[in-house]
Design a protein around this nucleic acid. Structure first.
Lengths: 211, 211
DNA sequence: AATATTTACGATCGGTCGGTCGGTTATCCC
DNA sequence: GGGATAACCGACCGACCGATCGTAAATATT
């Protein structure tokens, strides 16, 4: 089987557009994205974009999916190489902060930005974001339950509460790093907060890194 | 001295516009605000708005100031009635969550929304937001230092780290309550996280409320 | 070589945006 | 009562928005 060059070209264009859209959305938001500007940036025509997505909303949904994929690549997948338990929980948080630190996305975090943008705006975009965020939360809670199973966390640990707190530290790092503090300081707070919390809860604090 | 009716009318209009602008900005953002829509909502003409603010940016800046004033009314001032120390620190967090809970602002929190919106967009708006946020952070850190002075927190307590963590819990409550969880649950997480943290740090846990 | 398919483009549409301007109305001062 | 002042309005502007459509170019199929 040979590859259809036409479709391959379309795929390449789509990927380039979505990567650019994810990056720009971290600065201007998903609605702040202008199709004309996006097209100009990429050296294509605005009407060319409509050949791939029939409306702006469809492009926004595709952008969200691409951002999720990117997040999995940079954060979730590498974190899963750590052994189950508090180390994996820590690895997830640490890789997440490192991803923000790396400035792959100029605005820091796609989902933080866009979730606030659409949190009060009903529609398909909001629903998609809510779905992804729910899966993410359940994933983190699942890692916490694994840590209970490995005996590194007490069975009485409130995994939802713990997931909430870790989420908090990461989310705030995004905002503080861009608006206020030098990024380094914000990320240090975020890391230390999560480490201290895990350290206080776990029966095996030696599994966690030093300060 | 009598009050100039013309100026009084202007003041009334200005206040009405700004209150509405603050509320709407929590849903659509400060840039998502359309002057035409805002005017229509208030039953005034668009050009009437330009009589009070010479540009959209000027209106945005005034809106920020009004939101800060509103925040002080509902959160900062009532919290200052609590005695210095961990109780005041807790009161600040508690009143803040209660303010979000009250749904005075339909989108939950003006500053959370707008800070994310402008965190990557240089300009006067961003600078104003950063300034207010810095003052706020220093204010919280100051309360934490007071708690050290009253002997309710250990002198070794990292007040900046503590302020960061409390900020995190409140910020995340805003997002989760609107996007994902039923608001009650999110606010419960936010309260419990801050209470537990203060409880673990203070030498006088009996000063804090029960779970 | 002829035809079908897919991508991409230029021109253009109606609508909304922020912003301007000349004029009207209400209130205050003398 | 007559200016002066301040608030406010309706009409209008150029720019940009998302979206549509007919067409050209590139690639595949036959």
């Amino acid at each position: 089987m040979t590859i259809d060059g036409r479709i391959a070209r379309g795929d390449r264009t789509r990927a380039a557009v979505l990567d650019r859209a994810v990056a720009r959305a971290t600065e201007d938001g998903l609605d702040g994205l202008s199709l004309g500007q996006l097209a100009t940036d990429l050296g294509v025509s605005k009407s060319g974009l409509f050949a791939h997505w029939r409306s702006k909303e469809e492009l926004q949904l595709a952008t969200i999916d691409r951002a999720a994929e990117q997040f999995r690549e940079h954060v979730t997948r590498p974190a899963l190489t750590a052994p189950r338990g508090v180390r994996r929980l820590w690895a997830l948080h640490d890789h997440r902060i490192a991803f923000y630190e790396s400035s792959v996305l100029p605005g820091g975090c796609f989902f933080a930005k866009v979730q606030f943008e659409f949190s009060a705006r009903p529609g398909l975009v909001r629903d998609r974001l809510a779905g992804i965020f729910e899966l993410w939360t359940e994933f983190v809670e699942g890692l916490a339950r694994e840590a209970i199973n490995t005996g590194e966390l007490s069975p009485e640990t409130d995994t939802q509460q713990l997931a909430y707190e870790i989420e908090s530290f990461a989310l705030t790092a995004v905002m503080k790093s861009r608006l206020l503090l030098s990024p380094d300081i914000a990320y240090r707070y975020a890391r230390r907060a999560a480490r201290d919390r895990l350290c206080a809860l776990t029966t095996h604090p030696e599994l966690l890194p030093e300060v």
